[in-house]
């Protein structure tokens, strides 16, 4: 899933300073699961903004709605009326959702309430970790199902680097993923596979090649 985190309230409130009636739009998918932009967070943000603005001379009206998925036109069609009523839309979805909203409502000012972090998952309640770097050409079959592209601080494909100590990465408080890859490959009896040099990666399949687009003509209708 996409993991995101809410921006600071201060940052959000500054972005809506000049608006009097805002639609706060949640998304029922990933950002609900990672407790960043679901129905609950929509309610809290809306109330917080009202509480703040009530104290000054410019109170704010909030409209609240949470759709099934912000990254799909049909769900945005359902909020057309609501969107019309507002002077601006605060999207509490990931960056994809925010852009869908902006594209679907071209005359509305759209504000992102979240910082989109990574493709990952929850490892325990309240903790999320990155798992995939969306490199466009998966190599997990070579690394025992553990991704060095996303999880090695230097995205090294022939690791570990010299900074790996006692299973910890030289960077921050993270595990050295190459340590884990080696341990897993050892346990699976596949060390010889790691002795093969992984050649330079084709980053053109990743974001480096420009924005990516997938076309499946076999499923397109008319």
């Amino acid at each position: 899933m996409i993991v995101a985190e809410q921006k600071s309230f201060d940052e959000i409130s500054k972005m809506v300073e000049s608006f009097d009636k805002v639609l706060i739009l949640g998304c029922n998918e990933c950002v609900t699961v990672c407790l960043a932009g679901g129905e609950k967070e929509v309610g809290v943000l809306a109330t917080s903004l009202r509480l703040l603005r009530k104290q000054g001379d410019r109170p704010i009206t909030t409209l609240e709605e949470t759709v099934t998925r912000q990254c799909e036109w049909e769900y945005l069609d359902q909020i057309e009326k609501l969107a019309e009523e507002a002077d601006c839309i605060i999207s509490m979805a990931c960056g994809v959702g925010v852009q869908y909203v902006a594209e679907r409502f071209p005359d509305k000012w759209v504000i992102p309430a979240l910082d989109t972090k990574c493709a990952g998952g929850s490892v325990k309640h309240g903790q999320w970790e990155e798992r995939c770097g969306m490199c466009g050409e998966c190599i997990l079959h070579k690394t025992g199902g553990i991704c060095p592209v996303a999880r090695c601080s230097k995205r090294i494909l022939n690791g570990p680097c010299g900074g790996s100590q006692n299973g910890k990465c030289e960077v921050k408080d993270v595990d050295c993923i190459w340590d884990q890859i080696y341990k897993r490959m050892m346990a699976l009896g596949r060390m010889d596979q790691l002795l093969e040099i992984e050649p330079e990666k084709n980053w053109s399949k990743a974001r480096d090649g420009g924005p990516r687009k997938l076309v499946r003509e076999d499923v397109m209708i008319g």
Partner: peptide, 8 residues
Amino acid sequence: KVLDDVGI
């Protein structure tokens, strides 16, 4: 935290 943020 929220109440601090909003100034209450």
